[in-house]
Design a protein around this nucleic acid. Structure first.
Lengths: 249, 249
DNA sequence: TCATTTGCAATCAAAAACTATCAAAAACTT
DNA sequence: AAGTTTTTGATAGTTTTTGATTGCAAATGA
């Protein structure tokens, strides 16, 4: 792999995902850690990215940093733990659905070399899935620009053709009586349909999502297991109705 | 193998793959390493590519590296002209299909602010379409890793739902009697289906594609108009059978 | 806080690629 | 056909790139 090619790949990765880990780049490129470090140094020298401990990030203007950058980095650790556990549930031969969203995205590096089929509506996921040589199907339909997810009736129809062993779904709200909710009705419809086509269903959510109710309900609590991170909240009301797996960060 | 022929091949290779290794060129041409080195030096001298350790890459301006949304717009001046003309054919209200591939990709910046609907099977296209706020539908189906295109029966089924005012298709080979051809049968099937669902059909191809025949035929010459760039080749055999629009670079 | 883990910088040896040079082969001239 | 020029391929020595290692610094977790 030639230097410009490698560095281009790094830049793409940073651009798409805001941050990138050296380890992931080592996996994706097959180069050594040293080489990646050197590349990152050069790219930082050129002012094309920002070197950080363990990887690199987009350089952000002060204003951007305040608004959105902070938030996406904040829960990274919890998301990583949740993703790691979720990925461990997937066995060779499984056919799984990965919802769009950052937590499911974090699962992908842990799927490397598994003999599985992944179906997703998350367009951001596709690059990383490709890089990890995972057989991937994408739903067709309207591209929702803000979240880079596929939605709409087209996606629903594509979905009719598939049945999943396991699905991994994100939720914006989890509530003891109101179930699982998400802001966009179109996305909710997809999540609902996926759940109905899966043998085992998992909701991935960090602790900020509990006790929250968003606009559109897509399933009852008992229709899926919850994977979340460790925190102080009383989980018993949820545990009465479904399985809750708590991972420690 | 003659020098101009060899150098042309090198340029094509760089254009198509963004970077190229000397070893690969040695294999492809059967020439020695020394010869390839000399060619690369000459081509760099002429400003046609960028020499790098182990091979060569496209020359990129710093601004391109930064924006990079438009990465795969190789230096291809021809492609740019072709794309520009093709884009000018699209009117507000049109519903168009954009094939995967770099020439159709180059059309996207010229579609900004048009009131249109785009359907595509090119995953690389989606980012740029988003950036330009174009309403976009993507075909569903198997993700072909190498070309980042969607293929397979899933894509074919998604396609059944759509009818297009215009479609813009790439071809690897154009031949007076063998029609339009492309290497991958799966991709050919998509192209064929798209053509049958479009009122107006355009094939985008730079001059290197003429007199070429690739593995899978997806349409007869007369089934689509050709948009290509200016060159010395005798076009009459083609003009007898279909409309050929030649744009000057 | 201290211990442990993880990432980092510096260094070094091996591998790969580069440069320069030269002789053989091919093409061109006369 | 003989001589000249150009192109080509091979070689030897140098440079660049790469990956591994080691000791140090930073982050993490108890």
């Amino acid at each position: 792999m030639l230097t410009p090619e490698r560095q281009q790949l790094i830049l793409e990765s940073v651009k798409n995902h805001h941050t990138v880990k050296i380890k992931d780049l080592v996996n994706q490129t097959g180069s050594s850690e040293s080489t990646i470090r050197r590349d990152l140094d050069q790219l930082e020298q050129k002012g094309l990215l920002q070197r950080v401990h363990g990887g690199a990030s987009l350089l952000q203007t002060a204003s951007e940093e305040l608004s959105m950058g902070e938030k996406s980095i904040k829960n990274a650790q919890e998301k990583e733990s949740i993703a790691l556990h979720a990925a461990s549930l997937i066995k060779d031969g499984d056919c799984v659905f990965l919802d769009a969203g950052s937590t499911t995205y974090a699962m992908i590096p842990h799927l490397r070399d598994k003999e599985i089929i992944v179906v997703t509506n998350g367009l951001n996921h596709l690059d990383l899935l490709s890089e990890h040589h995972i057989k991937t199907y994408v739903l067709g339909g309207l591209v929702k620009h803000r979240t880079q997810a596929v939605i709409g009736t087209g996606a629903m129809q594509t979905l009719q053709q598939y049945r999943f062993d396991k699905c991994f779904i994100g939720a914006n709200g989890i509530h003891a009586t109101d179930g699982y909710t998400t802001p966009d009705p179109e996305e909710a419809a997809i999540k609902q349909a996926v759940i109905h086509h899966s043998r085992q269903r998992y909701i991935l959510a960090d602790h900020t999502k509990f006790e929250q109710v968003s606009f559109t309900k897509f399933a009852e609590l008992h229709e899926a297991d919850i994977i979340t991170d460790d925190f102080e909240l009383e989980l018993n009301p949820y545990k009465e109705k479904t399985t809750v797996k708590v991972v420690t960060t």
